Simulated scan of single mutants.
Amino acid sequence: MRDIFCLATTFLILPNLLLAATVAVGVTEPITTVSLSMTETGRVETITVTEGSRVIAGASLIILDRRIEELDRRSKKIALEDRSAITELEERINILSDQLEKARTLLADGGVSHKQVQDEQIALMTAQSQLLALREKKRREAIDFDLAEENYERRQLLAPTEGIVTQINVAIGETVTPQETIIELVNVSEIKFRGNFSVADEGRFEEGQDATLRVWQNGQELQRHAVVVYVAPVADPSSGLIEVIAKIENQDLSVIPGTTAELIDTRQDVQ
C-alpha cells in the first residue's frame, strides 16, 4: 500500500489578497543510486577510491589482476603492427610490374616468347593474391587486437556516472565474481523529490512547471528551485492523493537527500 503523506497548506500573501498554494509533501532522493559489479571473475589488485570519494563518469574504481590479458594484448599489438611481409610483397609487385612491362616491349620486338611474358604475368598475379591475403590477415589481426583490448578493459570497473562512493564491499586480494555488488555509487548532483498532493486541492501541479522545494535540515529551512517532471494521471483511490515528481539542481550538495520536504506550487492566478 502506498505511503500516505500528511498535506500542508501554504498561503501566498499579496497586497489585499490571500492565495492558497498547492503543496505536495514527500521525500528527497538521489537522482541515481547504482550498485556496481564486475563482469569477470578475478582477484582485486587495485582499489582507486575510498568511501566518500567523489568521482566523475568514466573514472576507474577497481582493477582486477590482468597480467595475462596485458600479455595477450601486447602480443596481438606486435602482430598487428608487423607489416614487414606486406612491405616486402609491395616491393616485389613493383619489380614484377616493371619486368612485365619490359617483357611486353621485348615481345613486340621478338626478344622474348609469349611463354616468358605469361610467366611474368603469373608471377605478378601470384604476388598480388598473396598481398591481398596478407591484408585480409591484418584485418583479422585488428579484430583480434580489439578483442584483446576489450578483455583487458573488462578487468577494471568504471564509474557509469558522476557521484559519491558510499560503500565498498571488497578488499585488495579478494576474489570477486560477476554480478556481485562491490561498490555503491550515489549521484546527488541532482535531487529528485517524490511526494503527493490532494485531489481536493484547488490547484494542480503540471509537468514542466517551475516550483519551489522547501526542506528543513541542520536546524534551518532551505528553498530551492524545482521543475516538475511527472504528475500521476490518476489519484490513489484509497487516499485521494496524486503523485508528483520534481527535479532539483544540487551541484553544491547543499540538499541532503533522504529528508522530508515540501514542493510548493508558487504560480499565482490573480484576476
Results as ranks from 00 to 15, higher is better:
178 P>M: 06
85 A>H: 07
64 L>G: 00
103 A>N: 09
235 A>I: 06
241 L>E: 04
138 K>P: 01
243 E>C: 01
11 F>H: 08
144 D>K: 06
187 N>Q: 11
224 R>P: 04
158 L>P: 11
159 A>T: 04
25 V>K: 08
44 V>A: 01
56 I>M: 14
61 L>I: 04
210 D>K: 15
76 K>G: 13
134 L>N: 03
236 D>M: 01
241 L>G: 02
35 S>T: 11
131 L>N: 02
76 K>C: 14
210 D>G: 07
143 I>Y: 06
175 T>G: 06
17 L>G: 08
223 Q>C: 11
44 V>R: 06
115 K>G: 12
97 S>D: 15
91 E>D: 14
159 A>I: 02
23 V>M: 02
271 Q>N: 15
248 I>W: 00
176 V>A: 01
54 R>P: 10
266 T>L: 00
41 T>R: 07
171 A>F: 14
214 R>F: 12
2 R>T: 02
138 K>S: 11
40 E>C: 01
166 T>S: 07
59 A>H: 00
35 S>K: 11
213 L>S: 01
72 D>A: 07
249 E>C: 04
108 A>M: 14
70 E>H: 14
187 N>P: 00
49 V>I: 10
16 N>P: 09
212 T>Q: 11
51 E>G: 07
86 I>K: 05
254 S>K: 05
199 V>R: 01
105 T>N: 09
84 S>A: 15
144 D>V: 06
131 L>G: 08
192 K>F: 00
101 E>R: 13
19 L>V: 03
262 E>H: 07
77 K>Q: 15
38 M>N: 02
112 V>N: 04
106 L>I: 11
237 P>F: 02
209 Q>K: 06
33 T>A: 11
189 S>W: 10
20 A>C: 04
101 E>F: 14
73 R>C: 03
49 V>N: 08
40 E>F: 02
39 T>Q: 09
87 T>I: 13
102 K>V: 15
111 G>F: 03
103 A>C: 12
206 E>Y: 00
44 V>L: 02
